[in-house]
Amino acid sequence: MIEIAALMMIASGAIHAVVNAVLKSGEDKLASRALIDLSGGLVVLPAIFFFPPPHGAWGWLIGSLIVHAVYFLSLVRAFEVADMSASYPVMRGTAPVFAAMGGVFILGDAITVPVAAGMGLVTTGIFLSAIGRNLTPAALGYSILTGFSVACYTVLDAGGVRAAPTPMSYIAWAFFVLGVVIGGAFGAWRGRAFVAYARINWRSCVLAGAMGVVSYGLAMLAFSVGDLPRLAPLRESSILFALLIAIFFLREKADRLKIAGGMLIFGGVVTLLLAR
């Protein structure tokens, strides 16, 4: 079962990279984020009638809601002031370390030497790919805050999906609540600009919203059956896909450090897949 969970995390990472590329390519990133989140909430709306409310996990969900708000704001700001190929590696590189620590000290998950080694390779590769990208202090700060937020909501959602009556009940209600509350708040924040943006860009953002549900839904299902220290870094394989998207679709430059970082990430992913 853990092998299936690991593959789910890698698939989650690949889809996550596509969703973030849609966000990065949008002219109004806050409006784009609002439309993506609202779309995700509407996609799962029918599901909340088939799964019970996440009794026993509301505290986890409320905590996740608060952290997600910080995450989305810092993510938008990071993408506004830096290239995706520069900011994305840092934000995703800090996340697995913090998440693994949270899994060990808060959720009581175990961590072995192979898992620690794989996590180290992934994290080193991610940071290596960001070296030399001339991140400003503001971009670096927003990227690190984003990564820390990712780690926090990862631990909260891992706890929530385990505490809920069923994993699907937490997943469905979490996406609905997060989408409606945060997406609605961001949309209201942008006001008329959001309406104008949505008229033109609704197709790509609705698709990204649906993909976001699949991406993080896979991650939360994996958290319900596997340990966080091993699984969290696997989602950061998304950096490989993000770099390819940034280079070939967003026309950002490649260099040797990015290639070397990608090789380390691949080695870390393989190590984590084989770890016991």
Score class of each variant (00 low, 15 high):
L145S: 11
S224R: 09
W189G: 01
V225W: 02
V270S: 07
V214W: 04
V150P: 00
V181M: 04
L272E: 04
G147I: 01
L156S: 02
S143C: 10
A174P: 00
F148L: 15
N201D: 13
R251T: 10
M263T: 15
V195Y: 14
I259G: 06
A172L: 11
R162P: 03
G217V: 10
N201T: 03
A185T: 13
V155I: 08
L272P: 09
V269M: 15
V206Q: 03
R190D: 07
S237G: 11
R256P: 03
L228F: 03
F241I: 13
L273Q: 12
G187C: 07
F186N: 10
I200K: 13
S149I: 00
K258L: 06
K253F: 08
I200Y: 04
E236A: 00
F194N: 01
A242Q: 01
L231C: 05
L250C: 11
E252T: 09
R162G: 08
V206N: 03
D255G: 15
M168P: 00
L272F: 07
L145A: 15
V180E: 04
L156F: 09
L218M: 15
M168V: 06
A198T: 04
S149Q: 07
D255P: 13
A164Y: 10
G160R: 03
A208R: 11
Y153I: 00
N201K: 08
V269Y: 08
F148D: 00
V161H: 01
A198E: 07
A196T: 10
A174E: 15
R190C: 07
R199T: 11
A198R: 09
L243N: 06
A198L: 05
I239Y: 01
V195T: 11
P233K: 11
M220L: 15
R251C: 04
C205N: 15
L243K: 10
L257E: 08
L257K: 14
R203Y: 03
A260G: 11
I171Y: 03
A185V: 12
G147M: 02
G268L: 06
Y197E: 07
L264D: 07
L257A: 13
R192Y: 01
F248H: 12
R235F: 01
L273M: 15
G159T: 05
T166N: 01
V161D: 00
V195C: 09
V150M: 11
A158K: 01
M168W: 08
L273H: 13
G209A: 02
S238W: 02
L264E: 06
A158G: 07
V150L: 10
C152T: 12
L221E: 11
F194Y: 12
L264Y: 10
R190Q: 15
I259V: 15
I247W: 14
A208Q: 12
L178R: 05
V213M: 10
C152G: 05
W189F: 14
T154K: 09
R190K: 15
T154R: 12
L243R: 10
F266N: 04
I259Q: 05
L240G: 12
A242K: 02
L231E: 12
L231M: 08
